[in-house]
Design a protein around this nucleic acid. Structure first.
Lengths: 150, 150
DNA sequence: CTTATTATCTCGTTAGGCGAGATACTCGGT
DNA sequence: ACCGAGTATCTCGCCTAACGAGATAATAAG
């Protein structure tokens, strides 16, 4: 296993640096609001699903975050205790617990991630179509490579 | 706090998807080798420093990972117990403990991250200079935006 | 040579997450 | 209508990563 040093390695390191900074951004948001990294991931997943107009159940949330049922219950307990979400029994299937995100929690999330997204969009607007296509293709490639890698 | 839906949002979601998959890749490597996410981060940091021909001390490692001294000691304990690193007292300043990475641990790291890096380099080779420059600029911009964001 | 600083480690505690199992509800077959 | 299988969530007990406070040891400054 050699030690690649070609010009492409700079991009590899940039990719890692960006990933690390994004993780730190989440971690800062978490500790500033008395939350844990997992809580933030949960909030993002909940906002995503809500944006898509779908419902998020406790079990689905746990699967998305890679938690078992006990951990999921503890997670939802924390979020509910902090007032970020509400548990609502699904009247159709009363085994299911639908997680509803509180509007203030959504606002909180946007206040931290909104500017970052805004800045990213601005960055993209500085590139022409072919350049944006390259960025999109590269990111999709990295995502697939990471997902595939045994 | 609106709900951006412009064409740039696809790239924002791709960026997040790539970040998530990269994190999952690390997590899989960790659990496959009986390690924890923090141990993997530590190994990467150690390999980086080693590649740069510098020394990594216990304290510096802890700072890099955002751990306090107690957590750092526990981390190095785990890595040493697993045979991934060795503690070596610095003869110049005998308070300092230099962490040396075992060659087998380096090989282990490369076996998991090497193919991913390889694939990323291949991806980049499919783009011309201007496209690679766009990818590089975009990643640097994202890194800076995440680092700056309060 | 005494005091401050730096580097690491020890001890006790906190809390996130796991495994196993309990509980509650739905659904298919008879 | 009933019984068992399957599904969704929760409770209990445990493990351990990481923290805070403080001990120990070595170097550096006055």
């Amino acid at each position: 296993m050699p030690n690649p040093q070609g010009p492409e390695m700079e991009v590899v390191h940039l990719l890692r640096a960006a990933t690390v900074e994004l993780a730190l951004h989440s971690a800062r948001f978490a500790s500033r609001n008395g939350m844990h990294p997992t809580d933030v991931r949960a909030l993002i997943a909940l906002m995503d699903v809500s944006r898509a107009g779908e419902e998020m159940t406790a079990g689905r949330l746990g699967t998305a975050l890679g938690l078992n049922s006990a951990g999921t219950t503890a997670l939802v307990d924390r979020l509910e205790r902090a007032g970020h979400v509400r548990r609502v029994r699904d009247p159709r299937d009363r085994r299911r617990v639908v997680i509803e995100v509180d509007e203030r929690a959504v606002g909180l999330g946007w206040s931290s991630f909104g500017p970052l997204i805004q800045r990213t969009v601005e960055l993209l607007q500085g590139y022409d179509e072919r350049e944006v296509a390259a960025i999109r293709g590269f990111l999709a490639g990295v995502r697939d490579a990471a997902a595939a890698g045994g």
